[in-house]
């Protein structure tokens, strides 16, 4: 499993890759956090639970990343670990992180929202799950 960023004209794309769709979603969330700050600098002492659902897997990815963005925004937190469980197009997850600290985290940019641009959730020919979309920052 891994994550990466991909190019978008003014913003940035996030891509999570995993053996299962859950892993791909977890990795996509790490890629999202890496847009905001260096994930290795973020602790994991506090946990937050979220739930979301959507009509299909791709929109579920958007809802999931938007749920992470929302928790970041209202709790003023950053996250470094994610545990996702899925049942069809419903998702429940635990986010592990800590309060945002400008002195320590040097957060570069806040994420405004996950978009449906370059949105894709699918298995690649090698059997790996890929979950990606563009984040408006």
């Amino acid at each position: 499993m891994s994550w990466e960023h991909f190019e978008h004209g003014s913003d940035i794309g996030v891509r999570g890759i995993g053996r299962t769709v859950e892993e791909a979603f977890e990795q996509a969330a790490i890629a999202l956090m890496a847009v905001v700050a260096d994930v290795s600098l973020i602790g994991h002492s506090e946990k937050v639970e979220v739930r979301c659902d959507a009509p299909d897997l791709e929109l579920l990815l958007v809802s999931w990343l938007n749920a992470v963005i929302y928790e970041m925004a209202v709790r003023k937190m950053l996250f470094s670990r994610f545990k996702v469980a899925m049942s069809g197009c419903s998702l429940s997850a635990v986010l592990f992180g800590e309060s945002a600290d400008p002195e320590r985290h040097h957060a570069a940019v806040e994420a405004k929202g996950a978009t449906v641009t370059a949105l894709r959730v699918a298995r690649d020919p090698g059997g790996q799950w890929v979950a990606q979309c563009v984040i408006d920052v």
Partner: peptide, 12 residues
Amino acid sequence: GLGHQVGTDYLK
């Protein structure tokens, strides 16, 4: 944050 969330909610 309000505008970002309105955009997110209504895009969906």
